[in-house]
Simulated scan of single mutants.
Amino acid sequence: MYATAFGLNASDYGKTIKVGSDEFKIVGIKPRRSKFPIVGQSLTNGMNYKLTLDSVKSKLAA
């Protein structure tokens, strides 16, 4: 699994985080996208968005 390679836990999949004014559910990791490897699904419109690892890790730690 890619989660541990990026410093995340497998249990982080499916967690909800707030980035800016939007809420996202973590739905995947794309290791070839080094700048935006995390895939987050918007809880508002259901679309998938690319997120930075730093933004996701900081929100999970909060």
Rank of each mutant, 00 (worst) to 15 (best):
S11C: 08
K25W: 01
V39W: 02
V19G: 05
I26C: 04
S55C: 13
K59D: 06
I29D: 03
R33C: 03
T4M: 10
K30S: 07
A61C: 09
E23G: 00
E23D: 06
P31I: 06
G7E: 06
S58K: 14
K15P: 04
S34P: 01
N48R: 10
Q41W: 03
L8Y: 02
V27F: 03
F24Q: 01
S21N: 14
M47T: 08
K25A: 06
L53H: 05
V39A: 04
A3I: 00
G28K: 05
S34L: 14
G20T: 06
T44V: 14
G40T: 06
I29V: 12
T44E: 15
V19F: 07
D54W: 06
G46C: 11
R32C: 07
D22H: 13
T4A: 12
K35M: 05
A10R: 09
L53N: 03
A10P: 05
V27H: 03
A3D: 02
A5G: 04
K50S: 13
K57S: 10
I38M: 02
R33A: 09
I17P: 02
F36C: 02
P31C: 07
K30H: 08
Y13S: 05
I38Q: 00
L60P: 08
D12Q: 05
S34W: 07
G46Q: 13
I17D: 03
D54V: 05
G28D: 06
S34H: 12
A3W: 14
K50P: 03
G7Q: 09
K57E: 03
N48I: 02
F6T: 00
D12N: 11
K25N: 06
K57N: 05
S58M: 11
T52S: 15
E23P: 01
K25F: 02
K25Y: 00
A3P: 01
G20A: 13
S42Y: 14
Y13T: 02
G28N: 08
P37L: 02
V27K: 09
A61E: 15
K18R: 14
A61N: 15
Y2T: 05
G20V: 10
S58T: 13
A61F: 11
E23N: 10
N45L: 13
F24N: 02
N9S: 14
P31M: 06
G28W: 06
K57M: 07
E23I: 00
S34F: 11
L60R: 08
G20Q: 12
Y13K: 10
R32F: 11
K50A: 13
G20I: 09
K50L: 04
V39I: 14
I29H: 02
E23Y: 02
K18C: 07
L43D: 08
V19L: 15
I17V: 15
I26V: 12
A61I: 10
A3G: 04
Y13W: 07
T44A: 15
T4H: 12
G40I: 04
Y49A: 08
N45Y: 13
A3E: 08
F24A: 01
K30C: 06
K50H: 08
P37M: 02
D54S: 13
G14R: 08
S55E: 13
Y13M: 11
G7Y: 10
G7K: 08
E23T: 10
L53S: 00
A62L: 15
F36I: 01
K15R: 15
S42W: 12
M1P: 05
D12E: 06
A5V: 00
I26Q: 04
K30I: 09
A62S: 15
K59N: 10
G28Y: 02
G46F: 09
S34I: 14
S42C: 14
